[in-house]
């Protein structure tokens, strides 16, 4: 299925957010996840399944003034 991750269309399996994070080998501690404009807190990542057409933002805090 296809979802939009950070503005780009990507083909993924029907994963949970946790599985996607694991698949992408992302550093979970610094990650902020927004799914269809809603923040999904880390303790919910295992329960939330991604669905066709979802818009996912994977964000993190960086240096800035």
């Amino acid at each position: 299925m296809e979802i939009v991750i950070n503005g780009e269309l990507e083909e993924i399996k029907p994963w949970t957010i946790s599985q996607l994070v694991e698949h992408k080998k992302l550093l979970a501690g610094s990650l902020v996840v927004e799914l269809n404009r809603e923040i999904i807190k880390q303790d919910q990542w295992q329960e939330v399944y991604l669905q066709e057409g979802d818009k996912l933002e994977l964000l993190s805090f960086v240096g800035g003034g």
Binding site: L27, S60, F61, V62, G63
Partner: peptide, 15 residues
């Protein structure tokens, strides 16, 4: 601090 989309090709440290 600032907030940005991650660049999955270069993992960043947690500031």
């Amino acid at each position: 601090v600032a907030l940005r989309r991650i660049d999955s090709s270069s993992p960043v440290e947690n500031i």
